[in-house]
Simulated assay, not measured.
Amino acid sequence: MRTTSKGTRIFAAVATLLAGMTAAAPAAQASEAETRPLPHCTMYISAGTVDCYATFHEAIANATGGKVTDAPSAASAMHDEVFAQRLNSLTEPDGSPKTGVARVVTSIEFQHPRYQGATFTWYQSRGCDNDTGVEYSVRNIKDHNSWWNDRISSFRGYSKCQVNHYEHTGFRGARTGYRSEMSTMGVMEDETSSLRWR
C-alpha cells in the first residue's frame, strides 16, 4: 500500500512537471514567432536601415529603389540569369551607379542551402570596384536584425561584389573567404555573425 501511495505521488509529480514543460513550450515558440521578422528583409548597409517584407518581390523593389519591380520568386531567382543581369546592370563597370540609380544590390543571403527559405538582401548606393579593398562591412548582424545571426546558409553577390562571411562578430573566427556565390557553405552554414564586401 505504501508503495502504491509513493508511486502515485511520484507519478503526480512527474505529470505536474510535464504539464509545466508543455505549457512553457508554446510560450517559447510564441516568443520566437514574435521576434522573427517577415521572411524577406533588406538593409541599406551604410545606414543600417532594415526593412522586412512578406514577399521577395517587395524586398527587391525596395533594395533597387523601384528599378526592379517584377522579381521572380526567391526560390527561382538564383537560377534566373536574366534577373541577375538586371541587378548587375544597375552599375557601371567600375561599380558606380548608372544615371538615375540610387540603390544597388550587393548580395542576397538565404536562410537555407541552395538558395531556399527566407532572404536578406543587402544594398548600397554603389556596387564594388575592381580592387581588393573592403567596400562595405557589417561588424555584427545582431545590431541590425538579431534573427538573422547564425542563419545564413547560401548567398550570391551582385554589382561586382564578393562577400566574406565571418563566424564571429568583428570579422573573427572561421570565414568563407571572398566569394561571388555559394549554394552551400560547409562549416560556415548557419554561422555568420559579420560580413565584408569587396
Rank of each mutant, 00 (worst) to 15 (best):
P113C: 08
V68C: 02
I108D: 01
K67H: 09
A102R: 15
A74H: 01
G95P: 11
V104N: 09
S96R: 14
E81D: 15
A63F: 04
A74E: 05
N62C: 03
Q111I: 09
E92Y: 07
A61G: 10
A84C: 10
E109V: 12
D70E: 12
Q85V: 10
A75D: 10
T69P: 01
G66D: 01
R86P: 05
R103Y: 08
T69V: 04
K98V: 02
A84Y: 11
I60M: 03
D80Y: 00
E58C: 03
M78P: 11
H79C: 10
G66K: 01
A77I: 05
A61P: 06
F83H: 04
A102G: 12
E92L: 12
K67D: 00
D70G: 00
P93W: 07
E92N: 12
D80W: 07
R103Q: 13
N62D: 14
G95S: 04
D80M: 00
A75V: 11
A59M: 03
A75L: 09
E58S: 14
N62P: 02
G100F: 01
S107P: 07
H79R: 14
T99F: 13
G65E: 01
T99G: 11
M78A: 13
A84N: 13
A74N: 00
L90Y: 02
E58Q: 13
E58Y: 00
G95L: 04
P113W: 10
S73W: 04
V68Y: 05
A63D: 08
V104W: 06
T99N: 13
K98N: 05
H79V: 12
G65Q: 01
S96A: 15
S89L: 01
D94S: 05
G100N: 06
E109S: 14
D70W: 00
G100Q: 05
H112V: 11
R103F: 09
F110C: 10
A102M: 14
S107Y: 06
I108R: 10
S107Q: 10
E58R: 06
A102P: 10
